[in-house]
Every structure is written in structure tokens, then in C-alpha cells.
Simulated assay, not measured.
Amino acid sequence: MSKPVLRLAGIAKSYNHGKPNEINVLRGVDLEIATGEIVALVAPSGAGKSTLLHIAGLLDTPDQGTVHVSGDDMTGQSDRIRTRVRRGDVGFIYQFHHLLPEFTALENITLPQLANGVGKSTAEARARDLLREVGVEDRAGHRPAALSGGEQQRVAFCRALANQPQLLLADEPTGNLDPATADQVFATLMGLVRGTGLSALIATHNLELAARMDRQIRLEAGQLVPMVS
């Protein structure tokens, strides 16, 4: 049996340690995501889902607990090792696209690959393939300001998958779009994830979108609980 792509064990995180206004955001979170599994994370604003995603993606460290990515224990690893694993094994998508405004769509997808040691021609070819998969290959030479909101987010999806990660983490990836566009863009995202066999943890407020995923969990009072459909 293969190891889970993501395993969180006993994750705890608080802010303002030892102060009267100390906030315990995560209280012993346990989670495993199998290869190819897409999990919906449902939580109200302020519940700690972004903190959980940042810890899972090695952007933040827990006060307690362990984080395994692709079978490797990242607990106590150096920043250099965490950065290497984050660049190669993890892809991030946010509510806002965060594309670099001075670069074209193609360049925004090519740059992460160049930073990971991929040659320019190979990186550009993969970028064009990804843009074609999400239906915006004709926008490759446009900068983000010239793209619609849906197009911007599709390019952001491509950037997240540029380095062929094993784990995708998404924080309200369609939350900044109108309902019709959100539905179309989410369908594009699911097609990309299913097509590549990625594992994914996707935070969303939208219960209809969450129902399309393999499993739904809710973050309540700092702990994860399964959702009953």
C-alpha cells in the first residue's frame, strides 16, 4: 500500500503564546490524503483553514505535530529542504490569482519551472500544453491585466501545476469569481487534477463544489470532522 501524499498528525497552532488573548487555531489536527484523492475542506472565515493549508504546504510550521509530504517527514527540516520539497512536490492556488503583472501568461507559468532548474524551451512547451488544456492557449502572450477573472485563475492553475507536483493545495480557488464563471473554472480545475492523478486539498465555502470531490471534511473548533452527505 502506498504512503499517503499528505499526512498531518497532531497538528496544533496558536498565536499570541502565553498572552491573555492567545488564540488556539488548530487543536490536534489529523489528516491523510491518498494518491489521487481530492478532499474538500469546508470552514467558515477565521476558522483556521488558511493556517492549515500553509502548514500542509510547508509555508508555516506547527507548534506541535508532524507533517509528511510524499512520505517524507518535514518536521524540523531546514528551510532549504522545505523550500525544495515545496517547489517540487506542492502546488498552490489562492482566491486571488497573484500572477506577476509584468509578465505574460506564458511567462508566469514558465518562471517557476526555470527556478526549479528546467530548461527554457522545455518549460515553455509545458506552459503551452497547460494553457491548451485549460482552453486559453490563445491568451499566452497577454499580461494578467488583459485577461478576464476566469482566464486569470486558469493561468494560476497552470502555474500551480507547472512543476508537476504530487499535492495541490487550493484556498477558495473560485471565491473571487461570479457563480457562473466559478462553476466553469472549477470544472476546469477538477479536469486538470483528475487528468494528472494529483492529490488535492481544496478549501471552499461552496457546498455544491465540495460535493463534487471524493471526500468532505469540516474544520470546527480547531479540529477536523467528516461531513455526512
Rank of each mutant, 00 (worst) to 15 (best):
S2N: 14
S2V: 11
P4A: 13
L6E: 09
L6Q: 10
R7F: 09
L8Q: 06
A9I: 01
I11T: 07
K13Q: 11
S14A: 15
P20Q: 11
L26C: 06
L26Y: 00
R27P: 05
R27L: 00
G28E: 01
G28P: 01
V29W: 00
D30Q: 06
E32K: 03
E32L: 01
I33R: 02
I33E: 04
A34M: 12
T35R: 14
E37I: 03
A43I: 02
P44I: 05
P44F: 00
A47G: 06
G48K: 03
T51W: 01
L52H: 04
L52G: 01
L52P: 03
L53S: 05
L53D: 01
G57R: 03
L58V: 03
L58G: 07
D60V: 00
T61Y: 03
D63P: 06
Q64H: 12
V67P: 10
H68P: 07
D73F: 03
S78Q: 13
I81S: 12
R82I: 02
R82T: 11
R84K: 14
R84C: 02
V85W: 12
R87Q: 15
R87Y: 05
G88Y: 01
D89S: 14
V90M: 03
G91W: 02
I93P: 10
F96Q: 13
H97Q: 14
H97T: 08
H98D: 08
P101M: 03
E102K: 11
F103I: 05
A105D: 03
I109F: 02
T110L: 04
L111H: 06
P112Q: 08
A115E: 12
G117C: 11
V118T: 15
K120A: 13
A125Y: 02
L130M: 13
L130Q: 10
R132W: 04
V134H: 02
V136R: 04
V136H: 07
V136G: 08
R139E: 10
R143A: 12
L147Y: 13
G149I: 08
Q152P: 13
R154D: 14
V155F: 09
A156L: 05
F157D: 09
A160K: 07
L161D: 12
P165N: 10
L167G: 07
A170W: 06
D171I: 00
P173S: 07
P173D: 09
N176I: 04
L177V: 10
T181S: 11
D183L: 11
F186D: 09
F186V: 06
A187S: 15
G191P: 07
L192N: 10
V193W: 03
R194M: 04
T196L: 15
T196G: 15
G197R: 11
G197D: 14
L201G: 08
L201E: 07
A203C: 12
L207R: 08
L207S: 05
L209C: 05
L209K: 01
A211N: 05
E220N: 11
Q223F: 00
Q223L: 02
Q223S: 05
S229R: 02
